[in-house]
């Protein structure tokens, strides 16, 4: 019978033996070396039946199909745009994916998206060499006007959104801001200047304490206190 050497939801670091014996199976963030299962990146241990995996805590964004992300236009191409997606790779938004409307060939593309503007887009293709294609056709995919953009860790995004969006709706209700969280770690916030600041502070707090459990309740208390003041 195999045994676990670390408790569930503990932090595992590279090279650390998580489990011994052939009963357990290595999942994401782990590998098998003979009888042992060893972590190969920093993360929270998660035991799912027989499968041992780690939930990453740190790391750069790696593009994945169907992710809704916030990106910045940094180049205008002959028939499309090149966008920064907060990753090692840049993405291309092609003309036919940019809008439901017909865009004539040779039109001035900066009229649609100009340099340094932010958009919400969805990834439709990722090649083996991590070339990324985006689309703007879909619900909620649009250009972002006003507000401000902050950067958070990619792997903290699930915590910021919370289970079924519980955390993010908490922030939205308390501050009255409009918030969009991109999977790539860009967050767009728009509202009253003071409330915007509170929303940013809250998100930073979540980011810092993302490895804790019972965070939603803690954030709720924190927001209640701040809003009453």
């Amino acid at each position: 019978m195999g045994k676990l050497l670390l408790k569930n939801k503990e932090v595992a670091v590279p090279g650390e033996v998580i489990a011994e014996g052939m009963d357990y199976l290595p999942g994401f963030g782990t590998y098998r070396e003979k009888e042992k299962i060893i972590a190969n990146r920093i993360g929270l241990l998660f035991v799912d039946g027989k499968v041992v995996k780690t939930i990453p805590l740190e790391g750069r964004y790696l593009p994945k199909v169907n992710d809704v992300i916030i990106c910045r236009v940094f180049d205008v191409l002959m028939s499309g745009w090149r966008l920064d997606i907060n990753s090692a790779y840049s993405a291309v938004l092609m003309l036919q994916e940019a809008s439901f409307k017909y865009i004539q060939k040779g039109a001035d593309l900066t009229k649609f998206f100009s340099l340094d503007e932010y958009v919400v887009a969805k990834i439709i293709r990722v090649s083996s060499q991590n070339l990324v294609d985006l689309t703007m056709k879909g619900p909620g995919l649009r250009k972002l006007d006003g507000g401000q953009i902050i950067k958070v860790g990619t792997y903290k995004v699930p915590r910021i959104i919370g289970k079924k969006g519980s955390m993010i709706s908490l922030i939205k209700d308390a501050t009255g801001c409009r918030v969009i969280v991109g999977q790539n770690g860009y967050v767009w916030i728009q509202g009253d200047p003071e409330k915007e600041l509170l929303a940013i502070q809250t998100i930073k707090k979540i980011e810092e304490e993302s490895h804790k459990s019972g965070l939603t309740d803690e954030i709720k208390k924190y927001l209640d206190k701040k809003v009453k003041k």
Binding site: V13, P14, G15, G29, I38, N40, R41, I42, G59, Y155
Partner: peptide, 11 residues
């Protein structure tokens, strides 16, 4: 490198 969240089999 480990802190940056890179995949590495050991330190």
């Amino acid at each position: 490198l480990a802190d940056a969240g890179l995949t590495m089999k050991d330190m």
